[in-house]
């Protein structure tokens, strides 16, 4: 249907069929990509859930609290691994969040001359490019021997203290939960600092000027305006990092000791859900595979839960500010 004729200069007011097709095609292509990602997620969840059914039927919710993982008697409970996952991830956050946000602040303010700042930004991001098996090797040959002395001091000093002492109640060996936690902290540091830095840099200059204009010093501006304004971005980075820490497999498997014996001690050898999966999948069959699927489903659920909590936290803090 032609609404108009062409102009006298020989330019066409009509759109060609190709142009219209490209417009529409581009829309459908991007829509397909977007929906495709969702379908992949659902497909994986469905597959894992379906394979886990025999184990779910046999052990029920008791799977979450039982501490034995015994392929010989075909009795499975994943509390040791859930505890290991939570403790290593929490420890990694405890160490990496202050450092990562601190790095982000230094690299987003004009503390350093640009000639030093730019390479530093790049180097922090390069930390994320080191393969996790290399982190594992470095942990075994460098970090573990280095930490042996301090860990022993902690054990000797705090082992007898009530409550807190249970975290240090076993003598440290070259492998264990604490080394896994520390290596995870280093691995998630670049995620936290890179995303936090982006969030801090994105705070509009006007807000900074408003704070300075009211007589705020640099620190007051930073802590009362810039960081609160960037808070949701920083939490987003922390959550991504937490997801990485909970799912990280190779480095953790190399360092944690892969013991299924439950112990609250950070110096004890332990396991996480992902290290359990990596260790046992090759030789598992029957109910054991199903139980591993169940454990994977639990990891799925944990990550989902953490993300929901983060969303709640962000919306709560936004209202308060």
């Amino acid at each position: 249907m032609a609404l108009a004729t062409d102009n006298t200069q020989g330019m066409s007011w009509h759109r060609t069929a190709t142009s219209r097709f490209l417009d529409k095609g581009f829309f459908w292509l991007t829509a397909a990509f977007g929906i495709g990602v969702g379908i992949i997620l659902l497909a994986i969840a469905f597959q894992v859930g379906r394979d886990a059914i025999p184990s779910i039927q046999k052990f029920g919710l008791g799977f979450l609290t039982a501490t034995r993982w015994n392929p010989v008697e075909d009795i499975y409970g994943a509390w040791t691994q859930i505890y290991g996952t939570l403790v290593t991830s929490f420890m990694a956050l405890l160490l990496a969040v202050p450092v990562g946000v601190g790095v982000a602040i230094v690299l987003s303010e004009d503390f350093l001359p640009p000639r030093l700042q730019k390479p530093l930004v790049f180097m922090v991001e390069l930390l994320a490019a080191i393969p996790s098996v290399v982190y594992g090797l470095w942990g075994i040959f460098v970090l573990a021997p280095l930490l042996q002395g301090p860990a022993m001091w902690f054990y000797k000093t705090f082992a007898g203290v009530p409550v807190l002492g249970s975290l240090f109640s076993t003598p440290p060996t070259g492998r264990g939960v604490y080394i896994a936690g520390i290596i995870l902290a280093i691995m998630i540091l670049p995620i936290i600092s890179a995303i936090s830095r982006d969030a801090l840099v994105a705070v509009p200059l006007e807000l900074r000027q408003a704070a300075y204009g009211l007589g705020a010093s640099r620190w007051e501006t930073l802590f009362r305006v810039i960081i609160p304004a960037a808070f949701s971005g920083i939490v987003g980075g922390v959550m991504l990092a937490l997801g990485r820490a909970m799912g990280e497999t190779m480095a953790v498997t190399m360092l944690i000791g892969n013991s299924s014996n439950p112990s609250p001690s950070l110096f004890a050898q332990g396991s996480t859900i992902s290290s359990l999966l990596a260790n046992q999948f090759a030789e598992a069959d029957g109910l054991q595979v199903s139980s591993l699927m169940y454990a994977a489903l639990v990891l799925f659920g944990l990550t989902l839960l953490v993300n929901i909590l983060a969303e709640l936290l962000v919306s709560r803090v936004k209202l308060k500010m």
């Binding site: 006007e206 704070a211 204009g213």
Partner: peptide, 27 residues
């Protein structure tokens, strides 16, 4: 910093903090 406490400024583009109205004033 002390100078700016005595000499206030209003900018071209309104720049309230992403905080409550009350907290903007109380800042």
């Amino acid at each position: 910093v002390e100078v700016r406490r005595q000499i206030g400024m209003v900018f071209q583009k309104p720049n309230p903090f992403p905080k409550s109205i009350y907290d903007n004033i109380a800042f």
